[in-house]
């Protein structure tokens, strides 16, 4: 029997960085008696990322490779995970909080009627054999303590809520156990994704993020944010209003249904600070807000604030920084 099974997601050939946070959760819960840790890697051509993931030190590395798993096809990936779970009978499955991961978690939990403990920022085993965790609800306006009874459990940790685990310095080599993908008939079909290349650094990896919102009024001002981002070696982000208006691509969205980030510095320009936005950036070390409305909620979470029109403030901000870069 398998104790904890971590789903290591591979996206475009790369191990998703959330994996290291899931490893931290798995290690903490395994110490509390939930059993040894194994890894599941599903996809096509995943041997190399699987090897990287196994470096945290695991009992077993399960690999399911198949051409039908080339694209991020939710039903197929969920079928693969459900099949692995029926073969391995884990007590707990830990899945990353990504678009594909959350869907695999939901489909697995509903199909098996397992307890889905999702979006948790803290989680612990309870004395009576259950799990207890904290999760934001209502867009982050409220924190709920949730309790799940007897497992098996499907746990989805919130991004950036747990530290990243380190790879063992001398990892022992585990031979992957290969599983053939034998899905039931699948009711959906998909075409290859159309991916939009991200300009510059991705928001979830940058140490500085400068984000624009509805207050920018259109796509053009984002060029100014890009200039500033380039000066400080950071990334451009956006609120949902900017994404839904088609000003910038979805990959830039920060918040509840976008990315959860924790950069050293987050600069919000023309962003009101709705709770659903803040839940994605409130773990940033320093937050700076530029907004023409002194009563905008963004100031309630900012370390530095400027009440003003970005059209006047931001060009001078850029020029001052440019002056110092020589």
């Amino acid at each position: 029997m398998t104790g904890i099974l971590i789903v290591a997601e591979v996206d475009a050939g790369e191990l998703r960085p959330e994996f290291w946070e899931l490893a931290t959760v798995a290690k903490a819960l395994s110490a509390a008696g939930s059993g040894g840790i194994s890894i599941a890697v599903i996809g096509a051509n995943v041997a190399e990322p699987a090897r990287q993931a196994a470096a945290i030190g695991v009992e077993a590395l399960h690999m399911m490779e198949d051409d039908r798993l080339t694209d991020p096809w939710p039903e197929a990936y969920a079928a693969a995970l459900i099949q692995l779970c029926s073969e391995l009978a884990p007590r707990m499955v830990i899945v990353p909080c990504t678009i594909l991961g959350t869907e695999m978690a939901a489909r697995l939990a509903v199909h098996c009627r397992w307890q889905l403990v999702q979006d948790v920022t803290q989680i612990e085993a309870t004395a009576d054999g259950g799990l207890k965790g904290l999760r934001p609800v209502s867009g982050g306006a409220v924190v709920a303590t949730v309790r799940a009874g007897a497992g098996p459990w499907v746990v989805v940790p919130r991004p950036r809520a747990f530290a990243s685990a380190e790879a063992a310095t001398t990892p022992q080599i585990v031979e992957p156990v290969r599983h053939a993908f034998e899905p039931p008939p699948l009711a959906t079909a998909c075409e290859a994704p159309k991916r939009v290349a991200i300009e510059g650094i991705s928001v979830d990896r940058a140490k500085t993020v400068i984000a624009g919102g509805g207050g920018l009024g259109g796509p053009e001002p984002f060029a100014l944010l890009r200039e500033i981002a380039d000066l400080v070696g950071g990334a451009v982000g956006a609120s949902r209003v900017a994404v839904d208006s088609g000003w910038v691509q979805q990959a830039l969205q920060v918040g509840l249904t976008g990315k959860t980030i924790a950069p050293d510095l987050y600069i919000a320009v023309g962003i009101s600070g709705a709770i659903q936005h803040l839940v994605g950036c409130s773990s940033s070390q320093v937050i700076v807000a530029v907004n023409s409305d002194a009563s905008a909620p963004i100031f309630g979470i900012a370390n530095y604030g400027v009440v003003g029109d970005w059209k006047e403030v931001m060009p001078a901000f850029r020029d001052k920084l440019a002056e110092r870069v020589v």
Binding site: V146, M314, A316
Partner: peptide
């Protein structure tokens, strides 16, 4: 689904330092 056993409003420990200056461009620099 798992049971909700407690609810709380999260506290935010930050306090905002407002930059003061004569006009927009001075605020920016």
């Amino acid at each position: 689904a798992p049971e909700v056993v407690d609810l709380a409003i999260p506290v935010n420990g930050r306090s905002c330092t407002f930059i003061e200056a004569a006009d927009g461009p001075s605020l920016g620099s």
